[in-house]
Write a protein that binds this DNA or RNA. Structure first.
Lengths: 166, 166
DNA sequence: TTTCATGCAAAATGTTTGCACACGA
DNA sequence: TCGTGTGCAAACATTTTGCATGAAA
């Protein structure tokens, strides 16, 4: 799964620092595994799922081979800590950076599975308004626009044209 | 899981008729099970998941006891046929009527799990515009606004106030 | 009478849990 | 040291599949 990116937002502490604060505030421990996972996850800006992460950290030649349950447990903590956002694509959990990253939504290409990020202040204010009308206290949203991306549209058009002309 | 409803849309044929057309157009058969499932699902307007449906049709005293795999298989066909829409709430597939029902989105209450439907033409046109900008051919969307509904806000406020005053 | 659909059981998938040992504070 | 975290294996929940039988066309 690939993705395109929005400009990052300035933040004062690193994801690791922020996670450590979070853990400490809850009386949880800063372990090698948790540290390694945050650093791994924030090394590059990408959408990923639990399996991607497990593959990467278990194949890793480094001494820190992190087990499947620990990855799942830590992902949950990272979401709680506000470092990651979780969404669902085809019934599987997909994660992305939340900390240091602006609010946005996604377009999901049904052909190549690419996630394209976009943001719109108008959507934000529109929903705010609708929430008020319904007395609904909004805490967040999950908006995924389905369809076919530019590249895949072009590819399939090119492939299909000869047949259409017969 | 409960829901609130939007006015229905006029349609010329019944869901069953439409499903039969769909099946025939694909060389599939109109079986007792498929017929029973469509009728069951469209008897009332409600959000439901596979388990709800399996419970209902397997507990059913009537002769048609429909098996789990058949329910799953038929749900998929109903989505393909455009009769049902599928979404994901907490990692499980949830279904709702699509045929004869206007385009809309949902607010999901984190406390009581209620789904509140709403529709907004502005969201529609906003996304249309954004799609154009990105060269993305939109086929649909999944928008779920998370938060707490009016009723649950009131309940928890009532409960919490005495404590806040101490 | 030929397919296709069903039901059964079992597999596959994605995620969570119980428990003994290891390790951070 | 104390109590939490980890890894293992197994459980779990949901959905899918292979295959023999049963029913539509």
């Amino acid at each position: 799964m690939s993705d395109s990116s929005l400009p990052a937002v300035e933040v004062s502490s690193t994801p690791l620092e922020r996670f450590e604060e979070f853990l400490q505030s809850r009386g949880k421990r800063v372990t090698q595994q948790r540290r390694a996972l945050v650093e791994h996850v924030f090394r590059r800006h990408e959408h990923f799922d639990a399996d991607d992460l497990i593959d990467e950290v278990s194949k890793s030649k480094s001494p820190e081979r992190i087990s499947r349950p620990t990855v799942y447990r830590t992902l949950k903590e990272l979401v709680d800590a506000g470092l990651l956002r979780q969404m669902n694509i085809n019934g599987r959990a997909v994660y992305e950076h939340d900390y240091g990253y602006p609010q946005h939504d996604h377009m999901h290409c049904e052909k190549c599975d690419k996630l394209i990020e976009f943001s719109s202040d108008d959507i934000q204010s529109l929903l705010q308004e609708i929430g008020l009308e319904h007395g609904f206290r909004i805490s967040g949203r999950r908006l995924i626009v389905n369809g076919v991306c530019k590249e895949c549209s072009q590819t399939s058009r090119r492939r299909k044209r000869p047949l259409d002309l017969i």
